[in-house]
Design a protein around this nucleic acid. Sequence first.
DNA 1: CTCTTTTGTTCTTTATACAAACAAATTCAA
DNA 2: TTGAATTTGTTTGTATAAAGAACAAAAGAG
Lengths: 405, 405
Amino acid sequence: MRKIDTRKFVRATRSTPREINRQILLNLVREHQPISRADLARQMNIGRGMITALVDELLKEEAIYEGESTVAPRGRRPQMLFVRTRDRLAIAIDVRFSRTYVMLSDFAGNAVAMESFETVVDPSALVSTLVARIKRLIRDHGASGLCEGIGLVVPGMVDQRTGRILNSPQLAWRNVDIRDALAQATGLQVYIENAPIACALSHAWLGRRGDLGGDFAYVTVSDGVGVGMVVNGQVVRGATYTAGEFGHIPIDLRGPKCLCGAFGCLEAHTSNLATISRYLGRELSSHETRELLRESGITIADVISRMRGGDAQARAAIEATARFLGIGLGIVINALNPSQIIVGGEITAAWDVVSPIVREAIRERALTEVSANTPIIAESTDISPRLRGGIALVAAPLFAAPQIA
Amino acid sequence: MRKIDTRKFVRATRSTPREINRQILLNLVREHQPISRADLARQMNIGRGMITALVDELLKEEAIYEGESTVAPRGRRPQMLFVRTRDRLAIAIDVRFSRTYVMLSDFAGNAVAMESFETVVDPSALVSTLVARIKRLIRDHGASGLCEGIGLVVPGMVDQRTGRILNSPQLAWRNVDIRDALAQATGLQVYIENAPIACALSHAWLGRRGDLGGDFAYVTVSDGVGVGMVVNGQVVRGATYTAGEFGHIPIDLRGPKCLCGAFGCLEAHTSNLATISRYLGRELSSHETRELLRESGITIADVISRMRGGDAQARAAIEATARFLGIGLGIVINALNPSQIIVGGEITAAWDVVSPIVREAIRERALTEVSANTPIIAESTDISPRLRGGIALVAAPLFAAPQIA
DNA sequence: CTCTTTTGTTCTTTATACAAACAAATTCAA
DNA sequence: TTGAATTTGTTTGTATAAAGAACAAAAGAG
C-alpha cells in the first residue's frame, strides 16, 4: 500500500498501459531468455496479439532480438527472443582509497577490458586521467559495440540531484563535483553512486537468476562499513542521500574512538583498519597507528594469511572482528528484517572462520527464529561487485518500472 | 528506479490509466479540499472533460460529494468537491499492557465514542469482550454512518499474511490469532498492525496537511521501543514482518540486561520501564524490580511530575533516558536518513527537558550538517496516535496508489 | 495426405484519453 | 441594462491501444 505524493505524482496517459506492459515483457525476456511470444502471453495472461505488437516495438528499438526457432514437441516452432546486451557497452569506474579501476563491459556485466592506476586525489586531475583512459579503452576495445554511459562508483555519499560527492572521508573530499566534468569531457551520460548502493544494484540487476527477488541488504566491509538497502524493490537513499551509514552506529559507547570522531562506532570495531589495528595491538584513531599502517603496508589479506599460517594473534583479531560484524548484521536484521544479507569485502576471504562466529552473534540478538536464520551470503571481492554495480547504473534504467502515480 | 518483480507483477489493462488518475484525483481532493474541477484540471495537467468523467464516477460511488459553490473573483462560480468522511465510520482498538482502548471514529479520525477496559490477556476472552463492546458502540453511536471495518493495533509483530501475532512480549503472546475470530464474530473486515507501524500510518494519512509528504520514521517509546518507517511512500514491514525493531539494537555491549535476554539494548536504556528502574536505582531485568514496579504502581508520569517538583533523582533519570534516546534517534538517522522523526510516548510530556539533550546526542554522531538537523517532532500521547492509526488501517486503502507493474 | 496442435499475425470491437467546441454562470464596463 | 469578457463545467468527436476472435503458418502424427 503506497501513498500517492500529491506534490510530485505522475499522471497516467493513453500510452501508460503500453509502457508498463512493455517494461514487464522486457523484464520477462531478460530473466527467462530464451523465451517465445506464446510463453510470454501465458506468463502475462494476455492475448498473443498484444505480445506481437509489444515485441515488434521492442525489436524496432533493438532492445531485444529474435534468435533461432527451437524444436518443440509438436506444432509450429516458437521463435525465441533475447535481450540485446552483447553489443551494448558501458564504462564502470571504481574509485578507491589507493587505486582506481576502470572497466569496459557489456550490459550483462561481461568484462571486455579492465585496467587500474594509483588514485589521483585531486578531483580535476583525476577527471583528466580518467578521460584519457576511457577514450583509449573505447578506441581499443569498443569495436564490439557502442558505449552508452559511464557508471562512477565512489567511496562516499552522493547527492543525486546535483551529482556532487557530499563527503568522502577516504579521499578527503567534501562537496566535490566530478560527474559533470566527466560527462562534458566524454560526451557520455555519467551515473554516480556510492559504493554500498552500487553493490546492492549489482546484486539486484546482475545477480544470479536464482537469488533475484525479495528485499535485501548489501553490507560492504572495507576501509569503511556501509549498507546498500533494497526495500520494496527500490534502493533506499534517504531524504538527503545519507541513508545506509550503519558504520557509524555505536555498538559500545565505551568502545574505541572512530575516525569520525565519535566513540564505539561499528566501523571502529569491524572495518579492515580496525582489524589491522587490533592485530598490531594499537589504537585505531591515534596518529602513530595510522603512520605505522602506512609505513608497514600491512593489509587485511596479510592478516588473514598469517592467521592461516598459525598466527594466534591474527586469528584473535579476525575472530573479534567477526563477532562485531555479527553484531552489526544483527542491527541490520532488527532494523530492516531483509530476506537476505550479502556481505562484500576482503574479510570474505576468511569466511570459513568468520561465518560461524557471525551466525552465533546474530542468534544472540535476533527476536524470532526466522530472523535468526536470515541467510548471510559472502560475496568474494574478485567478482568486483563495485564495477558490476557501475555497469548496473547504466544498464538498469532500461529495465526499471515506469514511475506512475 | 524500481525493479519489476517478475514473480508477482500486475499487468496494465485498458482501464489502468483510469484507475491511476482516479486515485490521484481522490488524493488531490483529500489534501486540498474544498477544490473545484477546474483547479483539479490545472493540478493534473489534464482537460476539464476528463475531470468531469472521473468526478462523476467518484460521485456515483459516493467517495466524494459536491458542496456549495463558492464566490470567485469573476466568471462562473466553481462547485467545490469534498471527500466523504463524516458518515463513514471505523472501529479502532488499541491493546496495551494494562488497558485496552476502543474507539468509534469517522474516516477523518474524529472520535464519535471511546471507552476502555482492563486488558484481558486470554486471547479468546479478549475477543468476546471486544465483540460485545464493539456491537454496543455501533448500536449506541453508529447512527451517523456505517462502520466499514476494524483497525486492531497490538504491541507486537504481526504476520500480515496470516494475521497472526508472532510475538508480543508485553502480553506474552506467541503465534496468536485474534484477527479472524474478531472478523467472524463482527462480520467486519479486520486490519491488524503493530503499534509503531500504526502510528506511522496515522501520521502519514491523518497528519496535518503541512507535514505530509517525505519519508519519515515514527519512534514509539513506551514499555518497549519500536520504529515505524515509511520509505518511498510505503511502510517497511520486512521479509518476515519484523522490521523496525530498533529497541533491541545494542548501544552498549556492557550495558544493562534487557527483558529480551541480551545485554545493552536501546530499549533497556530508554523505555519507560528503564527510566523508572533507573529512578528507583534498581536493575531493570531482576525479578525483584519487576515486582517492586508492579506493587508500587509508579509510572513514568509520576517520575516526570516529581522531576517538575524538584526531585533531583527523577531529573537525573530522565536526563539519562534523553541522552540514550538521542543515541537511538542517531541510529535511525544514520541508518535511514529520514526527512523527519516523530517521537511518540509518555516521555514527550517532559519534552522541554528531553529535547535539548536529544539534539546534542544526535549532533555528536551525525555525519552531515543536514542530518544533524533532522527535525525531531514530539507527538503528545493525548491525541492517541495508536487509535488514529487503527482508523488509518481501515481508511487508507481507499486512497492508496493502485499496485501496478 | 489429412488432421491436430501450437505459434504468431491480423482484424474487429470496445474502452477511454485527448482535444475542441459548446453551454452556463458570473463580473465588468459602457 | 446590455453586451463583452472570463471562468467553469459538459458534450462531442477522434485517436490510441487493449481485448478477443479469426486466421495463417508451420510442424508432427496417423
